[in-house]
Amino acid sequence: MNEPSEYRKMNRGSRARLSLQRIWIGRDHLLLIRASGWNEVYRRFYFEDIQSFTMIWSRGYVIWGILLPLLALILFAMVWSWGARIAAGITGGVFLMLWMVHLLKGRTCKCWLQTGINNERLHMLKRVSHARKFWEQVEPLLIAAQGDFSLEEMDAVGMFPDRKMRPVPPAVPRVDDPNAGAEGASDETAVVN
């Protein structure tokens, strides 16, 4: 089965450590493919399970924005001092070109997709513009599956701790209480009946 028609490619894919990540939109889920060597691992995020998409602006944009022209300048000066003027021009030009591309691509970011059980980093979304484009494509599908987010509803549900998740342990009978044993016995009988 080569690329089923029910999946739509979202981006070209991007390197993340030793693997290549790509993301596809399916009928009812997002499919994250992590290819490392000859193995591919698939993670599916169903539209109704996705809780949030978080984007953090990373410092890469500023750091490379400073480093690349500095590198261009240093390498240009170094090669110029050797007397190879054309090579110096090419070296400096390449780094300046990289710097321009970096600036034009816009701010860098890190993105996460949160579900009830995990918070998956989306390594393929490294620029704010790409992340926004991704969200523009995905948001209508998620809203169609879940409806609109309501802050009031969230406040109403989540302002108090969930009592069901933390069951209150039974009270420990006091030793000095003469009726403690009798009460305990009657409780037990009630449970059995």
Partner: peptide, 24 residues
Amino acid sequence: GHQVCGNCLSKVVVHALPALYRKK
């Protein structure tokens, strides 16, 4: 725009969905 994390001061954009608080 974005909000700033109160702890690490990162600039964060959050797109939340109802699955965050609705129980399955």
